[in-house]
Design a protein around this nucleic acid. Structure first.
Lengths: 110, 110
DNA sequence: CTTAAATATATGAATATTCATATATTTGAT
DNA sequence: ATCAAATATATGAATATTCATATATTTAAG
């Protein structure tokens, strides 16, 4: 349907397009974390963390390392951290628009 | 459910997570383009282009400028172009993984 | 070999996205 | 006022994602 490369890039961005997955990635920017670490830091249940990690894993965004019964995850590429930083800059540049949009989102959540 | 900021960031990345929208953005990196321009360059029908532009517009990624009956679109922030560039670097760093994944995608498209 | 801890996967109902088709709106020209 | 060009929006069936619950798997310890 589309060029495979564009399809692939879309998959990459789609993988970033989820609040919990973003929080996970932000945690991993600070360094390797086990599933339990993430679970504790984010206050969500084990299954949810594993499910979202699985998605990040299949998109090659995140990389697992087994150690005993634990699995430690890390970013597969430091550029991912840069990307998140750049995104943060974009959001900051448009804080006013952002607020307007958040308001709109909130209103439509009846 | 989630922190609004993370929800918002997720919306942003989700907006990038679509092949046609990525192609549109790549076109706009080169400068302002009308809907007709885009339609011609991408070889898709008018409605599809407008639909995807609408999504990019509501996410504040893209900005319209009316001129007669035409509407010209441009990136709302030059950092968007940088973001796409950075993403490209990430893909290049992982070309081998990428190929593996594309293969997997192709296989699962039975 | 049993058990417990840590992680992963399966399932499916609810929700959201996609995309094609049809229709509406807006603007400039005659 | 009418028409045509350019763009936008509405609709809905098909498809994909989300997320909670239940179950599997893997590994180390006893």
């Amino acid at each position: 349907m589309y060029q495979p490369l564009h399809q692939f890039k879309a998959e990459f961005f789609k993988a970033l397009g989820h609040p919990l997955r973003l929080v996970i990635l932000e945690q991993l920017v600070a360094g390797e974390k086990s599933v339990t670490d993430l679970q504790a830091a984010l206050g969500v249940d084990q299954s949810s963390v594993s499910q979202q990690l699985a998605i990040l894993r299949t998109r090659n965004i995140v990389e697992p390392r087994k150690d005993g019964t634990s699995v430690f995850y890390r970013l597969r590429d430091p550029l991912i951290a840069e990307l998140l930083d750049l995104a943060r800059s974009i959001f900051n540049n448009h804080l006013i628009d952002t607020q307007a949009m958040l308001q709109q989102l909130a209103t439509s959540e009846t």
